[in-house]
Design a protein around this nucleic acid. Sequence first.
DNA 1: GCCTTATGCTCAC
DNA 2: TGAGCCTAAGGCT
Length: 325
Amino acid sequence: MPEGNEVHRWAERHTAAFAGRKLNILPGPNHRFSDAHLVDGKKLLKVHAVGKHLGYEFPGELYLHVHLGRFGDFTEGCGPLPEPKGLLRAVMQRAGSGRPSRSQKGQPHNLTCAHDDGTQPFPPEDVDWWELRGPTDCSVYDAAKWQALLDRLGPDPLAHEPDGHDDPKRAFDKILAKKTSIGELLMDQSIIAGIGNIYRAELLFRHRVNPFTPGNEMPLNRLKAIWKDAIPLLKAGMIDRRIVCTDRKDRPSKKALAERGEEHYVYRRHGKPCFVCGETILRKDVAGRTLYWCPKDQQTTAAENESALKPGISLKSSRVKPKRL
DNA sequence: GCCTTATGCTCAC
DNA sequence: TGAGCCTAAGGCT
């Protein structure tokens, strides 16, 4: 269920837990992940993260590609594996593990990576296995296929490696050449990799940008500001697992730690008052995804506001004929 | 228990 | 452009 920040966090954590070790890769019970045998028993070199994609690199230029999609998630643990949950399952386990670890204390762990408050249940060195459920993809790529994936992704605000995926100019050029709305372009992974629906909505609000603005009408300095803001914003989400996009001064509680319901300015706050101006937040189904915005702070037109979903109308019924902007 | 929604993406037409 | 895929939580009856 992650955006790019979460994917990078998993990559760092799984590198710390498993890199340099021989691993057992187990397919799910329904053999959906039939590639497991290609990397089973091999030593993991590194875990790469680009945009929302994970690549577990093994000798022979093989990459176990994982894309979590909207529903995928990892569970980590020490000691014995839990019973399988769900049909789509893959497991990565330290070869020969099952050993009692110091965290195990006689009981199997079946914990997600972090608690809600951001604390880790146990450090990566105590992680013996991860279980993956419900991903969009879990398959082995060769070097050419992995490179093709990298080539079609835009720059990633969280990219560490100087391979072109940290240079935003490519993204700016593409946006400025298109008439498509900035709200749609920010979600396009070939333009910027790693931005999802939450950060799309929150970044546009934070920079007071009308989400319906055509890309070619976006001021370059505004695009640069969004990119610059995205880096710490995504990193903050990566640290405490909660995605918090509000500044302390704008939160009703004024507390340093956002309270429940204060994490976002507009995302999933439709029908509620804007923290900044008090106007009611609107939402609209755009190309199959829900866009949220503040009609006052983001200066949308009367026609754009009129197109918003009325309270009480379900998204499902509105998606009979989703309109592209 | 049912319905809706959800941080995503691919493919066929 | 629409269908399809997959899991989980929350609201409602």
